[in-house]
Design a protein around this nucleic acid. Structure first.
Length: 257
DNA sequence: ATGGCTGCTTTGAGCAGA
């Protein structure tokens, strides 16, 4: 069974690429972030026709997340947003797929440590942490958290750790929240299979950063302890980042037995 | 190099991303 996450930076623009990628990578579950479209404009028919059932939580202009499941799998018991956490920004959707719980999240960017968006990010991380704790208990550790975390957990995940030291995405409080998620029993899937690989999942559009492979690993798949023994592979697919008019993020793919 | 691109927005300069 394969699970993937991909920040598409506008599903309207990237729909042809998503369909193309799914043709060659018929994963069982695909989590999308930054749909940038209102709930009513989600391209449900095109994705159904491509063989996927969908649950989505859309928003005009910014944010928006979706869970796609390969038919006949269906997203069930869908929860949009973090329960009891009021937030005008639509960043989280969760669904039960088979016997496991899938949580798709577009983490807050935060902009900079002195921005008002940074404390919002830390408060959001605290709320998500509480939700994860509850979901792990409810689903007996059979939880997968996939998404754009906007956190580079380690200097190994950053092309220029000195330049990024104590900057947003790399700051100690953000990394501490990532560790607290790991402390709940989650594993960083990519690092299970590539403990030392300096690979990235995002490259700035500017200054030919992708061509020079100057990026960061900020898109992750965290595997609940109840699923750890089933994991067999995790990889970052750089291919779509090299296409015409790409998203600035690459898909990350996890394989479970 | 505090910009560089890209997508979006009551269309066009400004915001946001990371």
């Amino acid at each position: 069974m394969e699970f993937a996450t991909w920040n598409v930076n506008s599903l309207k623009v990237r729909l042809p690429q998503v369909l193309d990628w799914l043709q060659n990578n018929p994963v069982d579950v695909l989590c999308l972030q930054e749909l940038k479209l209102d709930q009513e404009f989600f391209p449900q028919q095109a994705l159904e026709d491509a063989g996927y059932h969908c649950a989505w939580y859309g928003q005009k202009t910014y944010n928006g997340v979706a869970i796609l499941t390969r038919q006949p799998l269906k997203p069930e018991a869908v929860q949009s947003g973090i329960p009891e956490h009021e937030d005008p920004q639509r960043r989280v959707i969760a669904a039960t797929v088979g016997d496991l719980r899938v949580i798709c999240a577009y983490f807050v960017n935060g902009e900079a440590l002195d921005s008002a968006k940074y404390p919002y990010k830390l408060a959001w991380l605290a709320a998500l942490h509480g939700y994860l704790q509850q979901q792990l208990a409810q689903y007996d550790g059979r939880v997968v958290l996939l998404g754009d975390f906007n956190i580079a957990p380690d200097d190994l995940d950053v092309h220029d750790p000195l330049a990024w030291k104590d900057k947003v995405l790399c700051s100690e409080p953000e990394r501490a929240w990532f560790r607290r998620m790991i402390d709940l029993g989650f594993s960083d899937s990519f690092r299970l299979f590539h403990p030392q690989a300096p690979e990235y999942s995002w490259w700035d559009y500017r200054a030919a950063m992708f061509r020079r492979n100057l990026g960061m690993r900020i898109d992750h798949i965290l595997l609940g302890s109840g699923l750890l023994s089933r994991a067999t592979d995790c990889r970052i697919d750089k291919t779509p980042r090299g296409w015409e008019r790409p998203s600035d993020h690459a898909p990350v793919v996890l394989t479970l037995d």
